[in-house]
Design a protein around this nucleic acid. Structure first.
Lengths: 367, 367
DNA sequence: GCCAGCCCTGAATCCGTAT
DNA sequence: TATACGGATTCAGGGCTGG
């Protein structure tokens, strides 16, 4: 499928809207292979027996809304199977899905993802910096939730903005454990009575990391359990399109109001750090063609242990081996591979300079 | 079943031994309802494709042992079902089980535990302080493994030493995420050739926390995938009895030698489990994710001579230079380095406030 | 004896594009 | 669809060596 084809489908999508209704029916009404990313925070199947009380006897406002009660694992598994299948149909071949859950439901979610052929890329732990303590001292403080990131299948080319996440983590690659506070304070939406509008509102920081890291600007992000619209809000800020599906009118109302107020970030602010792989490829032969290196000139290996001679066709010859800068380097080092650009050096005024410097000059000309 | 009845059965148990053979058969040969705690580290069913090399071209020593190979999820699920059922039969009514896994298998494990009627008490995340990085930059660093702690059924009176774990955690309630280093250095057992004796040896600190927190002295701890015997070693140190089951002769040999040397109440080993707590690193990107600074917002240098704009991935752009708060600061000042935290300021109510203030807020949340 | 620097290693589902 | 090949990619910590 070409980019053009996909783009042509997009006008059919109800972009930046909240669809009212059952998420399975609504997903089934959307065209197949049209969504870049799905974020899903399904009901948790919490097995609460009676009410939970704090030591001071105040009642904990547990997740016991009607939509969160399932009679059995069987019922819950059927529900999980159906919505994951509907999600799978509308995902683009190179799309991906994130689901979040706790130990009550995440093992059912993960197993069913695998059963349907989704390919798990990472499980991620959201480590809450301010969780609710375990009041009775009968278990460990339940201080995290689990997210699963999966592509549509093995071998799919999912989106991963490695460098952007690395930058977000101040230069060290992002790990699978994320320390973030729960959603409180001004960010926590209230209803007209002043109570929290949704029992499990997710923090925007969580969605920021997910959407920044696994989508590109202009992508379509769908959330089948939209709630108060955190996914939509962050998608909008980051210049992505969103589609929300929500059954409960009360939540849709809050979300709508919230989304109206959200502003997209500056274009400049949305540019993120990119990887070298995205830069244009420069064949080594160009350095010779352009006279930056002369045929017959000698190159020196990184530790100055080997040398090789440049040939007019942009290959090297050294120690009776001929081939590309990478092949000759790999052979001399006895290594499975070698980046010739950083391995080979030329001499200028007695100093050894990596040939990558010449590549950078060419790339700079190309802007 | 009364305590007396249980005690009467104990002499029949092969205490403090390593049983040679298949774990399902061996468990089936033990009397029912006789074990207090089971710790199980089953094969993870990793599905590795080719070889993996580090950027320095060295080869990663992968877990490619035959015992980790399963033909399909179906095959793995059958195996899981069978050993979990055998484990369930020998557990005392108030016994408990711990299993450990990664995203490859832990969802199958958790779902099957629930299917069999085990009652999940917590899922626990072992956050590795020194995980292997992701060398190709294609995913998040796989920096954790997941443990599941479950009782034999709903309403069972499992053992939980709340105060002991709280003490181990410097007086604060123990959480469901545990930061511990992987097993390296002298603790890592070597074979006669000097290679690691087992590819997946678990750290004693992990078992220390589990056995201390969820058994009592004199309890019987069984490990059906004994490997090099970490469970047995820690059980012995802590004055519990153990039963190990291991199929591979080479592992049994190493474990036997190890266990002979273990002394009960090894004070030194207890000390190593309490880790020193350093000031947590806070990446600048977190201020952006958390909405403390908005992408597109401007920061001002310490003398208000320069400004720069915040980007969504936590980098800055100013005077055509992009990079971390430290890099951009250093560049603008023409200095070799720069502490961006004290250099950059944001505007609030007309005043310039150093961004370090925001970092302090985050650190305060983290305790 | 101490310190700096080098080397090694850890449960990993780890490439993308052109031909 | 399979093959070829260019060339991008790592963090923390322990142990050892040499000065």
């Amino acid at each position: 499928m070409t980019k053009t084809t996909v783009r042509a489908q997009q006008p059919l999508l109800p972009l930046n809207q909240i669809l009212a209704g059952d998420c399975i029916e609504m997903m089934n009404s959307l065209p197949e292979a049209s969504i870049d990313l799905i974020f899903a925070d399904p009901p948790y199947n919490l097995q609460l027996r009676g009410e939970l009380h704090r030591p001071d006897n105040s009642k904990v406002d547990a997740v016991d809304d009607a939509w969160d009660q399932f009679g059995s694992f069987d019922h819950y598994d059927r529900f999980t199977r159906d919505w994951l299948a509907a999600a799978r149909r509308i995902l683009k071949p190179n799309g991906a899905i994130w689901v979040i859950g706790s130990y009550h439901n995440v093992f059912r979610l993960g197993a069913e993802l695998q059963n349907q052929g989704y390919w798990i890329l990472n499980d991620v732990v959201w480590r809450k910096s301010n969780p609710m303590p375990n009041f009775r001292g009968k278990r460990l403080t339940n201080a995290h939730e689990t997210l699963i990131w999966a592509s549509k299948g093995e071998g799919a080319k999912y989106t991963f903005n490695y460098e952007a996440l690395k930058a977000l983590n101040e230069g060290v690659q992002m790990r699978s454990d994320w320390v973030l506070p729960i959603c409180t304070g001004n960010e926590r939406l209230k209803d007209d009575a002043g109570d929290k509008a949704h029992p499990t509102q997710k923090p925007e920081a969580l969605l920021h990391r997910i959407i920044l890291g696994t989508t590109n600007p202009g992508d379509v992000v769908l959330d089948p359990f939209f709630g108060t619209g955190t996914t939509g809000a962050v998608a909008k800020m980051l210049g992505r399109d969103y589609i929300g599906i929500e059954r409960e009118e009360a939540y849709r109302k809050v979300a709508l109001k919230r989304l109206e107020k959200v502003r997209k970030f500056d274009k400049e602010a949305l540019e993120t750090t990119t990887s070298k792989r995205a830069e244009p490829r420069v064949p080594f032969g160009q350095l010779v063609e352009r006279g930056m290196l002369r045929p017959g000139e000698e190159l020196y290996s990184i530790g100055n242990r080997f040398k090789a001679k440049v040939r007019a066709d942009g290959t090297l010859v050294g120690n009776d081996v001929k081939g590309s800068i990478h092949q000759v380097g790999a052979h001399l080092e006895g290594a499975p591979s070698c980046n010739g650009w950083t391995y080979w050096h030329f001499k200028r005024e007695g100093k050894l300079v990596p040939i990558d410097l010449l590549r950078q000059q060419i790339r700079a000309e190309l802007n």
